[in-house]
Design a protein around this nucleic acid. Structure first.
Lengths: 344, 344
DNA sequence: CTGAAAGCGCTTACAG
DNA sequence: CTGAAAGCGCTTACAG
């Protein structure tokens, strides 16, 4: 329509086009966008009308080039297929959206090089700050980014003197799980999970050990798996069922729900009944876990709350003085009792 | 360290700092970054060393301001909590990453205004193109963005003459589900799902109807639910169990796995056995569905493939001439038979 | 192959 | 409250 010459490339309208169309200066257009209150209503309406008529869309790149930073936040997530992290992302988004920030997500998919690549990308885009749910292991890119001045808050990671972090008290979770089974009468517990170099797994085991140590007469065995999957769970089930009946544990703590689900499935096909013969508790409160036929008791991590808290911390950091002191927060997980640990 | 005056704000190094440090001109630094081949190795190494020494990070905003577009793609996803969409995102990411693009995600969380806000945000950032897994309903922002020249490919949406789209043949999926139950001997089928104004649900029902129509003697009842959740599934189970035994269906097609899981759970507690008394098939192949005690047969949507295909289409569009013709692709879902439809 | 200059589209003092 | 000018940090012809 507005093309006078069909041969000439249509170009997206820019602010000077709007100014010309509305008969005002460039600065006034900018003011309408950024400080509408200081522009006279009549002029403001004229500019707004021109913006609509031309289909003008402000170029954020140019805007944050001069302002220094975008009011956008980045969140690099280790594994979106795990609903725990989706919960975190939703909590963070709600918190930041209410405060005028946008939250962009990137999935590193448990790949260290992709994690670094996305952290770098967000830095190149000059986001105001980042959330990072990291893999276990070094976080080179994030360290560098922080040194250069972009705040980073780590979630599901403990944090230390140099870094803000929000984590869940994994040890306490393991303790809750074990105590729950002990309360329900189990005495020969088996902890299944792994690999143990995952700090979450190691701490859950620690917690379970501590709980068992306080119960004279109770014992805890350990079975290390190579992953936290349903398939690994099948092996756990097999391992238990293969033993003579009286040597079997009467309580199973699985370090992940998927593991618990696999174990229950295999146990059942081998004739071991859950919860009648064996109490089982999982970990994570993954979506759909409540839906298996024997609904699985579990330790629930406060993902949504973690996301909100991390976002709040990040916004604080963004506004903080350079000298600001880093803080770590440990959230408490909670027990959700379902059918798999019901007695009678 | 490099701060000569502690009072002066440390500023992130920019390209002119690198040029000065390396003793070359600004253009040469840019060439090292963008056309390394045309710079003499010695000079190149000098520049690279300076970049490392200063901790220089190129400012993408400035870069794509002059280049017009970032080589970044945006994906606005309707619901990351549904693993189907996570699969799509992973497929898209693998495809685009291999071709040098980055993929940023935004979760609209089944909220139309957030969908629009993120579409706008990506446009303001001048992404090279967008993927959109939309909610059912109008897509105002996306339409406008396309008119202004940013390519958008819709996923899990049929597409039309004006829009590229990649969808799954929902009708065919419904047909597969019904045929599977009929093959296994069921004759009184119940289709549960809803609300029916969700086009996916309506089409799945259509397909099921078509399959039943071809089997003389088979009948199909319909039970509309208000959502596709486990809780709604409980109601479905209740509805079935409440009927006199001989008036119950012998096959249940649930329009979603969560629905199937809820139904099975309630049926079981009411003494209706799956699959012995009633065959059940779900839809979506959601993560963890395979793990319920009675593993649930389902219709699997090719999420990963859909993501790859959508990404491929988007990259085509980005390179296409303005006059390019839009295409729609319909992917075929497939049957996954599990325990919940096993006979004998 | 290298370097000086113009320009991408905005925002922000600054003088009126 | 408004408008002309400078500048954010890059890339890209262009002349050497």
């Amino acid at each position: 329509m507005s093309q006078s010459n069909p041969a000439e490339q249509r170009r997206n309208p820019v602010m000077t086009d709007v100014a010309k169309h509305a008969g005002v200066s460039l600065g006034t257009v900018s003011n309408v966008l950024n400080n509408p209150d200081i522009v006279t209503p009549a002029k403001r309406d004229r500019v707004l009308a021109s913006i609509a008529a031309l289909g003008f869309v402000r170029n954020q790149q140019a805007r944050s080039l001069v302002r220094g930073r975008a009011n956008t936040l980045g969140f690099v997530v280790v594994d979106l297929a795990n609903s725990f992290f989706v919960d975190i992302a939703r909590g963070a988004e709600e918190y930041t959206a209410a405060r005028g920030f946008k939250l962009l997500l990137a999935n590193s998919d448990v790949d260290a090089s992709r994690q670094d690549a996305y952290v770098d990308l967000f830095e190149e885009f000059r986001v105001a700050g980042m959330l990072l749910a990291p893999l276990d292991g070094p976080m080179g890119a994030a360290e560098r980014v922080e040194e250069r001045g972009t705040p980073v808050v780590r979630v599901n990671w403990p944090g230390d003197d140099e870094h803000c972090g929000i984590a869940v008290d994994e040890r306490h979770g393991g303790q809750l799980a074990a105590e729950h089974l002990l309360e329900r009468g189990a005495r020969r517990l088996l902890f299944a999970g792994g690999p143990f170099d995952l700090h979450a797994v190691a701490h859950r085991l620690d917690g379970a050990r501590a709980a068992v140590a306080e119960h004279p007469g109770a014992v805890l065995e350990v079975f290390e798996t190579d992953r936290l999957t349903v398939v690994a769970g099948l092996q756990v089930g097999e391992h238990i069922a293969a033993r003579p009946e009286r040597e079997r544990p009467d309580g199973l703590i699985a370090a992940a729900d998927a593991l618990a689900a696999g174990a229950i499935q295999r146990l059942r096909s081998e004739g071991v009944r859950v919860p009648d013969d064996l109490l089982v508790i999982g970990y994570d409160n993954n979506h759909l876990t409540a839906e298996s036929l024997v609904s699985i008791s579990t330790i629930s991590q406060p993902g949504h709350e973690m996301g909100e808290l991390a976002a709040a911390r990040l916004l604080e950091e963004i506004e903080a003085e350079p000298g600001h002191r880093h803080r770590s927060t440990l959230l408490r997980p909670s027990l959700i009792a379902r059918r798999s640990t019901e007695r009678g």
